[in-house]
Design a protein around this nucleic acid. Structure first.
Lengths: 118, 118
DNA sequence: TACTTTTACTACGTCAGACATACTACGACA
DNA sequence: TGTCGTAGTATGTCTGACGTAGTAAAAGTA
């Protein structure tokens, strides 16, 4: 059953931005890249992905541009996204936040040592 | 500004259960314990805490019982919570999930190596 | 040639967890 | 007398994730 979405919540944007740092891309490609990078361990839902784009464009983290690809396989038009400086900034912040989060959560993970209170 | 709640989302229950494994406790105490364990890095909101209790009791992860504490300072009644076997099971599952999640998220963290695609 | 799959989205609606705001109530302390 | 710490309850809003469904063109396949 893989990973419940609620855990990842808030990090989908980060994953997408991480891929966009390497260069502009579009929905389908990003989706496959996430899949590939995680060895199929995480497969982002289409609706999640595209709503992330909308949100992030509204927030100024990405910019979209449409490419009318005549010779390109599959479909006719693709919406590419490129990361903005604000997006890069946001990505860096999320990376720092992750370090903190990990630290915090791990205080509560695998601590089954029953503190004897008899 | 600490940790945004969306990240932690889904792990509040786990933190609470982790504390309850050591023995029954009540809201205020759990709140302080989380604060203490994380060196003030994470302070759970009261509403988040109490709604987690309601949810977890509904799901059978905890059981509540009221203690009418005559001599006890502060207030008159305390609602204690104790973890159930299902709660312990759920906690273990969340711990495993965390391992996976960490693995996945970290593929996208601190990867600012610009893959040259000129 | 007809059918299915892959690519590449858009639209709409629902759900759950987090949290803001506000209120109650008792005891202690100054 | 008023504020602080303790110990909650009530109500409502927001947001991200995601279920369901539909569109459409190209590419593979029988």
């Amino acid at each position: 059953m893989g990973i419940s979405s609620d855990v990842i919540r808030g990090y989908n944007d980060t994953m997408i931005l991480c891929i966009l740092i390497k260069g502009p891309s579009y929905g389908y490609e990003i989706s496959r890249e996430i899949r590939r990078l995680t060895d199929e361990k995480y497969i982002i839902k289409e609706t999640t992905l595209y709503s992330a784009f909308t949100r992030m464009e509204k927030n100024g983290y990405v910019q979209s541009y449409v490419v009318e690809a005549e010779g390109t396989a599959s479909g006719k038009r693709r919406t590419y996204y490129r990361i903005t400086p604000q997006g890069e900034q946001y990505y860096r912040e999320k990376c720092e936040e992750w370090t903190l989060t990990k630290e915090v959560v791990e205080k509560f993970i695998g601590r089954e040592d029953h503190g004897d209170n008899s």
